[in-house]
């Protein structure tokens, strides 16, 4: 049975939430399996991320959380089943098609990768640059201020702390105003205070109507999020995706 987020969830997040719940899933996995080196990492995974939904993905290390996220933004191809990104079958997409889809999905990794020879500001603006657009100066300053990196804009990425890197990655992930934010262990390398700050930013994004999927081990983060937003927790265990219990 597919686990649906906002589609199944009756509770809207304010005015936008009501509209969002009527939308088709932005990302949909139908009976998906993924094998690597002959070993099956998971199978029979079905998931539908509705517009405006908020999901956590948990599970033990090596369960395939990162792989599942990669399937969600077309980095990997499922070995069985169907992955639909914005109503398009990911398997049939040309590489240019995948590139276009990634402009609608913001991704934040635990080990945020940047172009180290470019400034933080240029790295944040990179999604706009590659799509041939330029940032409005005021909007850009607002974004840098929102993630608290106005003072670091001219610095190079290696000069940033772990938390600053995560926030820079988040700014880069949202600059195109994507419909979906996928975050892979975004708080893995940062302290509690910074984790809370990052979570607040993600919750704000969700309130703006973005779908959020966070892969994490951090139960404190999940509990803190559930206090602020209606989030569903999915657990990837024993090669299956399950809805986590009420303890989370």
């Amino acid at each position: 049975m597919p686990l649906t987020g906002a589609i199944a969830s009756p509770a809207p997040f304010g005015q936008n939430g009501a509209k969002r719940n009527r939308g088709r899933p932005v990302i949909e996995l139908d009976n998906v399996a993924y094998s690597y080196g002959g070993a099956e990492l998971f199978a029979g995974v079905s998931l539908a991320l509705a517009p405006g939904s908020f999901h956590f993905l948990t599970g033990p290390s090596g369960a395939g959380k990162t792989t599942l996220l990669k399937l969600c933004y077309g980095e990997l191809t499922a070995t069985a089943g169907q992955v639909r990104l914005f109503d398009q079958d990911a398997r049939g997409m040309a590489r240019d098609g995948i590139a276009m889809v990634r402009r609608r999905i913001g991704v934040v990794h635990q080990d945020c990768q940047f172009l180290d020879h470019l400034s933080v500001a240029e790295n944040v603006a990179l999604p706009l640059t590659v799509s041939g657009r330029s940032a409005d100066d005021r909007d850009f300053r607002d974004l840098m201020g929102w993630v608290g990196l106005s003072a670091q804009a001219a610095q190079l990425p290696p000069e940033l702390s772990g938390g600053e890197r995560q926030r820079a990655a988040l700014a880069r992930a949202v600059i195109m105003s994507p419909e979906v934010i996928l975050a892979d262990e975004p708080t893995g390398n940062i302290d509690q205070e910074m984790s809370q700050k990052l979570l607040t930013l993600l919750v704000e994004l969700n309130r703006m109507g973005k779908s959020v999927l966070i892969a994490t081990h951090d139960l404190t983060l999940i509990r803190a999020a559930k206090a602020q937003v209606q989030a569903r927790v999915l657990r990837l265990r024993d090669r299956r995706l399950q809805l986590a219990g009420a303890d989370l």
């Binding site: 590139a99 990768q113 940047f114 999604p127 590659v130």
Partner: peptide
């Protein structure tokens, strides 16, 4: 990898 992640086309 980074360029692809942010939606750069191969061309």
């Amino acid at each position: 990898r980074v360029l692809r992640l942010v939606g750069a086309r191969d061309t």
